[in-house]
Nucleic acid binder design. Structure first.
Lengths: 235, 235
DNA sequence: GAGTGGTCTAGACCACATG
DNA sequence: ATGTGGTCTAGACCACTCA
């Protein structure tokens, strides 16, 4: 049997059609029996692919009517999934001002969360992200040096850390745990972000993991309140 | 056929066994074929129930080994789901100081988000929530007066708004959309929460919906940073 | 009434984990 | 070697929507 299951093939095919716009929001898909015969599989297999797309809010099923491409929900894709900074902001005009990029021995708190041994080095990235030229957030990322040494000096592909990890080293982040709070801006952050010292910022601490549960990235971010987070909660 | 599908019956049965502790974290469930014969259904039907429990992180499946009750993940249940204040805080010692409870004509911003007509009244609840006696958050809730008039004067069942809506009026919230940011504490909020005026607070605006998409509650909350939010993000 | 998605069956072969 | 979950089949009947 092919190493990749049929329902994942179908999932990927439909996903790319949706992302490319070949299937636009509101469009009706072929019926389940029709898809089954198109892909040469049984209906249950098609349903496995559709179930997954529906759970990601990319499809809406209406009994007796059909299966439709969902209207993009600002709320869902913005925060219930792990994405790039631009994806989370829902904007594309993101530029980056890198304040520091290099390898250092991390403080104990970082070392613990990344599971590093004493004196083991880590890559530290300190960046200011700007949306349409306006400073929006300060991001500090720590990664094990052994994972990707070149990260300490090479430029990121397309300015995206996660994209670079995947394309350059095949490191695929699987999930992340976040803590969200609020803090008063320090003098340095205030200067970078163009706000008053002591003014409120959204503070996020994030640990990202790969498939087997190994922590790969510890990130702190400080975001101006004009760039809030969005989330959709299910019952 | 029974009005409720078999896989939901099985789902509910396993869920209650997990919640009651009859199935404890780490326990192995019967195998899928065994469950199928126990419930008198086919294996695919059992799998539908298990799929749902797995997607809620209540079960972990290990190929070749078995299906196990998951270790409760602090992170997941705390914020990716819509729950009571206590559930979200992950604590049980929550008390409430009600500052206002009554019906008023809401400001336009509230009226719009709840889809009310001009001059239509709304119930307003203003509460300070305390965790182990420490003020943690100010919560302001707005609901259509027509939905639950008694809410304007009667006490909440167990101090829970969502619980009261469900038990008293059968109103079941289905999902909510949140915006999370940071603000400086106003004088009034600072006083209630025991913090300095101008100090940073987590600010959340939430609109909760019932099944058919009707907005039922608009809530604002202001939370001390010592009580952060937790979230788990999937890829 | 024809077509859709929702549920369900009774099998099958496979990759994998464990003793 | 045995048993587990992962994938898949080729049907079936149902409730529902829509023309």
């Amino acid at each position: 049997m092919s190493p990749v299951p049929m329902y994942e093939v179908i999932y990927g095919d439909l996903l790319s059609q949706i992302k490319s716009g070949a299937l636009a929001p509101g469009d009706r898909l072929s019926s389940e029996p029709a898809l089954a015969s198109q892909y040469g599989v049984s209906r249950m297999t098609v349903r496995q692919a559709l179930d997954q797309l529906e759970s990601e809010h990319l499809l809406v099923r209406r009994r007796g009517s059909g299966t439709y491409v969902a209207e993009p929900s600002a709320t869902y894709r913005r925060m219930n999934r792990l994405g790039s900074f631009g994806e989370e902001m829902g904007v594309s005009e993101v530029t980056t001002d890198t304040k520091f990029q290099g390898s250092v021995v991390p403080p104990d708190e970082v070392r613990g969360k990344l599971g590093l041994k004493p004196r083991q080095k880590a890559v530290r990235l300190l960046r200011v992200r700007l949306v349409s030229g306006t400073p929006a957030a300060v991001q500090e990322s720590w990664l094990p040096y052994s994972l990707a040494p070149q990260l300490a000096r090479e430029e990121l592909i397309g300015g995206s850390l996660y994209g670079t990890l995947l394309e350059r080293w095949g490191v695929k982040l699987k999930w992340a745990e976040q803590t969200i709070s609020a803090v008063a801006a320090t003098g340095e952050h205030a200067g970078w972000l163009g706000v008053e010292q002591g003014s409120p910022l959204i503070s996020i601490t994030r640990v990202a993991f790969v498939d087997d549960g190994t922590p790969i990235e510890l990130a702190h971010s400080w975001t101006r309140p004009e760039f809030p987070l969005f989330a959709r909660l299910e019952t």
